[in-house]
């Protein structure tokens, strides 16, 4: 599936509506992390473009930000599974990115071999439990 320039603009709009950039935190938007669209994304872009033309007489990527949000929200209600499916793939891709993981301190390397340290916790909290006595049935 190849995307025209207009489709790509629509795609970027959609991606940034899901996860917008946050320059203050140094976080990119979802359009900036190399998301590869697939057939389902194409379906959504078509739905959004058709809806934009019917509802606002304009291509989706030509709408103002508030209008894009309005169109997306109305179509999310009509096609909840499709939009959820695409959102799932967008966030999965987004939170794999080194840049994102670095800013959010999510770990830039696999758990192994370094591992992590975890607080032991206060086992004296068990005193209440212990002194209550046996709770199993003696058979």
């Amino acid at each position: 599936m190849s995307f025209s320039g207009i489709d790509e603009a629509g795609l970027n709009d959609l991606l940034d509506l899901i996860i917008p950039p946050d320059p203050q935190k140094g976080l990119p938007g979802a359009s900036q992390v190399g998301f590869q669209p697939d057939e389902e994304v194409w379906k959504i872009l078509k739905i959004l473009d058709d809806a934009a033309i019917v509802e606002l007489d304009s291509r989706f990527h030509e709408l103002s930000h508030p209008d894009r949000v309005t169109v997306v929200n109305s179509q999310r209600k009509s096609h909840p599974r499709l939009f959820s499916w695409v959102a799932k793939h967008v966030v999965t891709h987004y939170y794999q990115q080194q840049q994102v993981r670095r800013v959010l301190s999510l770990g830039e390397s696999p758990p192994f071999p370094e591992g992590y340290s975890v607080e032991e916790g206060d086992l004296t909290l068990l005193e209440d439990v212990y002194f209550r006595g046996s709770i199993y049935r003696h058979v």
């Binding site: 975890v118 607080e119 032991e120 916790g121 206060d122 086992l123 909290l125 068990l126 209440d128 439990v129």
Partner: peptide, 15 residues
Amino acid sequence: IPLGRAGEKIAKGFN
């Protein structure tokens, strides 16, 4: 296994 902060937090709830 270490309780961690979360384990300790909920242990207090059980108590």
